[in-house]
Design a binder for these strands. Structure first.
Length: 722
RNA sequence: GGGCGAUUAGCUCAGUUGGUAGAGCAAUCCGUUUACACCGGAAAGGUCGGGGGUUCAAGUCCCUCAUCGCCCACCA
């Protein structure tokens, strides 16, 4: 017997060695599996593309969860003989990475993006991102992930950049991408626009002021932002509101509203709630999304009064050039001096903040690029992008697990507006549009004619992410990979990016390729701390996956992330649970020791027959194989893992092995030989079934186990039992 | 305001098509029997949030109430 079995299992000295063995074998790559005859050249495929983590930092426990699930699925299907590929990659994460980098740069050197030329600054951020990327790729290996490293991709590399430009041009040519002067979400802190879904609302207390523009003005209005009122061009009331009927359609000139003159038209609009405040709403078309829509309906002029730095651009010394918050005070002071202020009350309000920078969002009219989600597309039977997103989910061509997320998905699509895709940051794919005087050129490559200048904006990071399932397989080139592995089989993102990402992948794949991007979306939850709180930097409750691995081993961590956690469920991370599975690893280690100790003289190549008691036990094993296989086929890893744990510990070890101690000492050769074969076979089967979940220890034990004819040297490619 | 969930043993959660409740951890008692003390054995613990309904039968299906949570909208 091997010496190492005489000591308790030590994952720390095992895992790196085993991972290297796998990597050296080349079997992560399906082409190698085919070449070496492990996998049939025409076997069914199983393809997974890793949701690329942002190159902003390091992997956390959420990534560990994601990798555990995907690697389990991938190893299972590989053992079942499918042509299995799992593609690794990382996401440049545009704003997230740039703002993280800028924060560090500011802290270290006091410098900002304005101190560097564009190219140089881009390279600095990229270097920062690529350094993080290398760390993360190393972490993925620690997690045991059987990723095909030969196919690694990055959302900002050369191939993906070509995919982005190709997609952009096609959408531009078909009129789906357009440039528009619109009120967008401006992040003054990050100095860029952001998409609707990059806004995070924070509840705060705010003051609601009620006042009139002037003594002569007939209607009082309420607002939490008096400073924006210098940009008002209308007052809207509900058409059914009896109080205001006589004013509808009239225009009032206000000569002096804190030093600004206003022209206010009274309009009737159904969206105004008569019950709220005075039932009249001051309309600021330049600085409110809602008001902008109203302005379009009533053909109202737009007056911008706040700039990109959230400072006032009109008025006299009281407000001009002041921050919005300072201008607000000045105007409130002026209102009360004039006797115009009628009421001041404290209300709760949701403030829009930018997800990545925390800056307070200032709606501003800007010239930006949008994707039209409501335009009928001739090449798609006049379907809209919204319909393309909806179709495969409602037809169940794409299955979402758990299925109640389908409803959430539809609810989101129904409320969807055009997607603002341009960002005023440097790190990302620059928009493939060039200008010369009045000419606009959109192309995959820069125009050859001289004098063209490229649009300085970059694309929302989710634009490139949307292409991920096929850009990683070589699109727009017609590659064998693309033909073989797309649509992909399994996609495993967190539910929090269902809209950001899953919907966009469906949209892009349906639009550009005319097929679904994946067959099954298995949504996982959020990893929280033992008390159910979200991990966050400010709460300082973060746990490094490495620390857990160092203490208990990757296999134990993986099991703790899988057992008992259904799709879509958050999990409370409990180190006790990891500890429990590290004990299980040791148990398996000792089961192997006992079995090998007691089956030394078993000849695997001889046909040993089982006695009837042992046949009955083996029938149970076969039933277990059945159940595990069925559960795994329907992605119920959480059940399969628990059943395996239970069988191996409480049936195999507690009952079968205990009972064997007597039988093996008995004089009846038939009985003891039968039992030896049984023990060895149950052990081998257990290792195979458990391998997708606990790859390291099972591979290590497999290498010690005497193997029979037809059994592979490496467990990772051993045939799944049936 | 609109939508989606959750409520099962002290804790974390399973429970697939309806057939009188399960697992891990923790806690209790006993045990050092040469695979393992990172162990074994035993016992304990739940009127499945409340109420109503359908059914021969409901944790599971329907209605309703309560509490908690998440997503979207953003009331100006």
């Amino acid at each position: 017997m091997e010496d190492k079995l005489s000591k308790p299992y030590n994952p720390a000295e095992t895992e790196a060695r085993i991972y290297k063995k796998w990597e050296d074998s080349g079997y992560f790559n399906p082409d190698v599996c085919i070449e070496k005859g492990v996998t049939g050249a025409t076997a069914p495929t199983f393809s997974v593309v890793l949701p690329p983590p942002n190159v902003t930092g390091r992997l956390h426990l959420g990534h560990a969860l994601e990798h555990s699930l995907q690697d389990t699925a991938v190893r299972f299907e590989r053992m079942r003989g499918k042509r299995t590929v799992w593609i690794p990659g990382t996401d440049h994460a545009a704003i997230a990475t740039q703002s993280r980098f800028e924060k560090e740069l500011q802290k270290e050197s006091g410098k900002s993006r304005h101190d560097f030329p564009r190219d140089e600054f881009f390279n600095m951020i990229n270097e920062f991102g690529l350094k993080n990327q290398q760390d993360m790729l190393g972490q993925m290996r620690l997690l045991g992930s059987s990723l095909d490293w030969s196919r690694e991709a990055f959302t900002l590399d050369k191939e993906r950049s070509l995919a982005v430009r190709t997609a952009f041009k096609k959408m531009y040519d078909e009129g789906l991408i357009y440039r528009g002067f619109r009120v967008v979400n401006w992040d003054p802190k990050g100095q860029t626009t952001i998409a609707d879904d990059e806004i995070v609302y924070e509840e705060r207390e705010a003051k609601l002021y009620t006042f009139k523009y002037s003594k002569d003005f007939p209607i009082s209005i309420s607002t939490t932002r008096p400073e924006t009122k210098v940009g008002d061009t209308a007052v809207a009331v509900n058409p059914k509101d009896a109080r205001y009927q006589e004013y509808i359609g009239k225009t009032y000139e206000i000569k002096d509203f804190c030093g600004v003159s206003l022209n206010i038209k009274i309009v009737a609009d159904d969206s105004v709630e008569p019950e709220f405040g005075t039932g009249a709403l001051g309309v600021t078309p330049a600085h409110s999304q809602i008001d902008a829509d109203m302005a379009t309906r009533h053909d109202l002029p737009t007056v911008q009064v706040i700039n990109e730095f959230a400072k006032m651009t009109v008025g006299d010394e009281r407000i001009l050039g002041k921050k919005t918050t300072e201008a607000r005070e000045a105007i409130v002071t002026w209102l009360s001096e004039q006797g115009l202020l009628e009421k001041e009350e404290v209300i709760k309000q949701n403030v829009s903040t930018a997800e990545r920078t925390g800056g307070i969002v200032e709606p501003l009219p800007k010239l930006q690029w949008f994707i039209n989600v409501n335009k009928a597309i001739p090449s798609k039977n006049n379907k809209t992008l919204k319909e393309l997103m909806r179709g495969p989910i409602s037809s169940r061509e794409v299955t979402i697990l758990p299925d109640h997320f389908e409803k959430i998905y539809f609810n989101w699509i129904d409320n969807l507006r055009d997607w603002c895709i341009s960002r005023q940051i440097i790190y990302g794919h620059q928009i493939p549009v060039w200008y010369r005087n009045d000419e606009i050129y959109c192309g995959i490559e820069a125009p050859e004619d001289p004098g063209f200048k490229q649009d300085p904006d970059t694309l929302d990071t989710w634009f490139s992410s949307g292409l991920w399932t096929f850009s990683t397989l070589g699109w727009p080139k017609k590659t064998i990979d693309l033909e073989t592995y797309h649509p992909t089989t399994f996609m495993n993102p967190g539910y929090e990016i269902l809209f950001f990402w899953v919907a966009r992948m469906v949209m892009m794949s349906e639009y550009l390729l005319g097929v679904i991007p994946f067959k099954t979306v298995y949504l996982h939850g959020i990893v929280r701390d033992a008390k159910g709180k979200k991990f966050s930097k400010s709460a300082k409750n973060g746990i490094e996956p490495e620390e857990v691995i160092k203490q208990f081993g990757t296999d134990a961590l993986r099991m703790s992330m899988i057992v008992g956690i259904g799709p879509g469920n958050d999990l409370s991370f409990d180190i006790q649970k990891v500890k429990a599975y590290s004990k299980f690893a040791n148990k398996l280690w000792n089961i192997t020791r006992f079995t090998l100790d007691n089956t030394k003289d078993l000849d695997l190549n001889k046909n040993n027959t089982l006695v009837s008691e042992d046949i009955a036990i083996w029938k149970n094993v076969e039933a277990l194989i059945q159940k595990i296989t069925t559960d795994m086929e329907s992605y119920k890893f959480y059940l399969a893992a628990e059943d395996l744990y239970h069988y191996i510990w409480h049936e195999f070890a507690d009952k079968i092995i205990e009972e064997s101690k007597l039988l093996l000492q008995g004089v009846d050769i038939a009985i003891s030989n039968s039992r030896k074969k049984l023990l060895r076979d149950i052990l081998a089967t257990s290792l195979k079934l458990l391998h997708p979940f606990m790859p390291f220890i099972t591979e290590e034990l497999w290498s010690i186990l005497p193997r029979g004819q037809g059994e592979s040297e490496i467990l990772m490619i051993e045939k799944w039992p049936h």
